[in-house]
Simulated scan of single mutants.
Amino acid sequence: MSIQETLKQLGIELPPIAVPAAAYVPFVQTGNLVFLSGHIAKKDGKPWVGQLGVDMGTDEGKQAARAIAIDLLGTLQAAVGDLERVRRIVKVMSLVNSAPTFTEQHLVTNGASELFAAVFGERGAHARSAFGVAQIPMGACVEIELIAEVG
């Protein structure tokens, strides 16, 4: 099954590439690697604001991470033209806006990791880091960046 067919089966329509909110570009390609800038969680087109362990639970955070993964796929498609060119999702780095006592950043980040696996299969298996941080721009609950290899 093609990537586009998989996305359709999952009920996912990729968004257009977002305009950066500061002095950076959405992606940079060097050689066969594409580096995507961090994307924040959005809900209804606005930053998905919250802090895990204070006013959000793990399940909602996981939904936010999945939403970011969809945005990242939209940016990746804009960067490479066709997601079939993706050989591998290489690395995911996730920042989770967390209370000092919240320790489930890895479970929140599964929302993105599981979607990449569903879309790309074996090519979606990746190295990953998940950090708890004191704050994210605009009060967003999660921010994720991605590195992919293309052919």
Rank of each mutant, 00 (worst) to 15 (best):
A79H: 05
I68M: 04
D59S: 09
C141H: 05
D71N: 10
E13T: 12
R87D: 15
V80T: 12
L33E: 14
M56Y: 12
V28N: 13
H126I: 00
L72K: 06
H106V: 07
T109C: 06
S129M: 10
G139H: 03
R128N: 12
V119S: 10
G132T: 04
Q77R: 07
P137N: 12
A67H: 04
F116Q: 05
E145Y: 00
I147E: 11
L33V: 12
I147T: 14
R123M: 09
H106M: 07
T58A: 07
V133P: 01
G151P: 06
E145G: 14
T58F: 04
I70P: 02
F27T: 11
S37F: 01
G81N: 11
E104W: 00
V142M: 02
P16M: 07
Q4L: 07
K46L: 11
A64E: 06
A118I: 05
S98K: 04
H126D: 09
G121K: 01
P137L: 00
V19C: 05
F131L: 09
E122N: 02
V92M: 13
E149Q: 08
S37C: 08
S37H: 12
D82L: 01
L33Y: 09
S98N: 08
V119N: 11
A18W: 05
T109D: 15
A134G: 08
V28P: 03
V150F: 07
E143V: 01
E145R: 02
P137D: 15
I12T: 05
L95V: 02
V92F: 03
V133F: 02
P26D: 14
I147H: 01
Q9T: 11
I40E: 15
Q63M: 06
A130K: 02
V92L: 13
D44A: 12
Q9M: 05
A112F: 08
A78G: 03
A22W: 13
T30A: 12
V80C: 15
